[in-house]
Amino acid sequence: MPTHKLINRMACFIGASLLASSAIAADFPQRDIRLIVPWAAGGGTDGISRKISNIAEQSLPVSIYAENISGAVSATGLTQLMRSRPDGHTLSVLTYDSVITVPRSELVPGYSLDKMTPIARITQEADAIVASKQSGIESLDELIETAKAKPGTVRIGVMPEGSGPYLAARRLENMTGADFNIITYPGAAAAESEALLSGEIDAAIASLGDFAGLIESGDVQGLVELSSEQNPTYPDVPPISEGGIDLESGSFIVLVAPANTPEDTIQTLESAYQEAFESDEFQQWVSNIGVTPSWLGSDEVGDWMLARQEQVFALMDELEL
């Protein structure tokens, strides 16, 4: 076959493939969308992801259904996302550990943020220190003084080593001279909630939203939020800056799709979730659970995640973690 004819056929084939891809993207979505929540059911990430998705699906001709796939500090569920077809029909969410802990540990072969396409940041939330009612601890000062007077006796539950709450506990020790018994729990804050109720730990670090039910029931008291601003949902829980301590820590939720998902598909998803984010229903709901709604679109969220990762990695180097 003459070379020019072969080239023409190849060009036609490539053109047809591009047109087919464009048609698929234009027809998106073609079936229900699967949202992988890489944490156990019942935690703050699970609740927020489900709520905003339930609202977002109202802007789409299909449903969005959530599936909890926990393990490996969120990497198990996200590995499934990375292996999914990049057609927009499988999504997931990133939290602090997905962006910081897992990449830092390098213990999950093939895990990479480069294999995901960020769609939007939905929330930011400060971590907080809470204490169980049965511990008898009613303030941050009391927590610190007890840990200084009786080293190793105040049991604080946090997520695994390298997580934001773990770093916050270590930094608080360094800043105040306290000596905590730091106990790590894999998974979301649900495990820490159970430990607080059973008396296994005296205090825990996660967001106030994660402990909303226990705070409302009176089983747990918020001592301080690791922030420089007062949380209006919890006016009785002061920011740590009021005590003269410069310690801020917190997580976030970022919606992602597999890498190489068509741009038109990403824009469709971003539009649906932004409409849900801006709805009165979501704004009121998320504020009621003490979480800060915080939107960043697909044009900005990737750079924001990389900057956050660089900042925290520098802190971990300083603490030799």
Rank of each mutant, 00 (worst) to 15 (best):
Ala178Gln: 04
Ala178Gly: 06
Asp179Asn: 14
Phe180Ser: 02
Phe180Pro: 01
Asn181Phe: 00
Ile182Thr: 04
Thr184Ser: 13
Thr184Asn: 13
Tyr185Asn: 08
Tyr185Pro: 08
Pro186Cys: 04
Pro186Ser: 06
Gly187Asp: 04
Ala188Ile: 07
Ala189Arg: 05
Ala189Trp: 04
Ala190Ser: 13
Ala190Phe: 07
Ala191Gln: 09
Ala191His: 05
Ala191Thr: 07
Ala191Gly: 07
Glu192Gly: 04
Glu192Leu: 14
Glu192Arg: 13
Ser193Leu: 05
Glu194Ser: 11
Ala195Val: 07
Leu196Cys: 04
Leu196Ala: 03
Leu197Arg: 12
Leu197Ile: 15
Ser198Thr: 14
Gly199Leu: 12
Gly199Phe: 10
Ile201Cys: 02
Asp202Glu: 14
Asp202Val: 09
Ala203Met: 08
Ala204Asn: 03
Ala204Leu: 04
Ala204Asp: 02
Ile205Met: 08
Ala206Glu: 12
Ala206Val: 11
Ser207Leu: 06
Leu208Lys: 09
Leu208Phe: 10
Leu208Asn: 10
Leu208Arg: 06
Asp210Ser: 15
Asp210Phe: 03
Phe211Pro: 05
Phe211Tyr: 15
Gly213Phe: 10
Gly213Met: 11
Leu214His: 12
Leu214Cys: 09
Leu214Gln: 13
Ile215Phe: 08
Ile215Ala: 08
Ser217Arg: 13
Ser217Lys: 14
Gly218Pro: 06
Gly218Asn: 08
Gly218Arg: 10
Gly218Glu: 10
Asp219Gly: 07
Gln221Asp: 05
Gln221Pro: 01
Gly222Met: 00
Gly222Pro: 03
Val224Met: 03
Val224Ile: 14
Val224Glu: 01
Glu225Gln: 15
Leu226Ile: 03
Leu226Ser: 00
Leu226Phe: 11
Ser227Ala: 15
Ser227Phe: 10
Ser228Leu: 15
Ser228Gly: 13
Pro232Lys: 14
Pro232Val: 09
Pro232Thr: 12
Pro232Phe: 09
Thr233Phe: 06
Thr233Cys: 08
Tyr234Glu: 02
Tyr234Ala: 05
Val237Ile: 11
Val237Asn: 00
Val237Trp: 03
Pro238Val: 10
Pro238Trp: 04
Pro239Leu: 14
Pro239Ala: 15
Pro239Gly: 13
Pro239Ile: 13
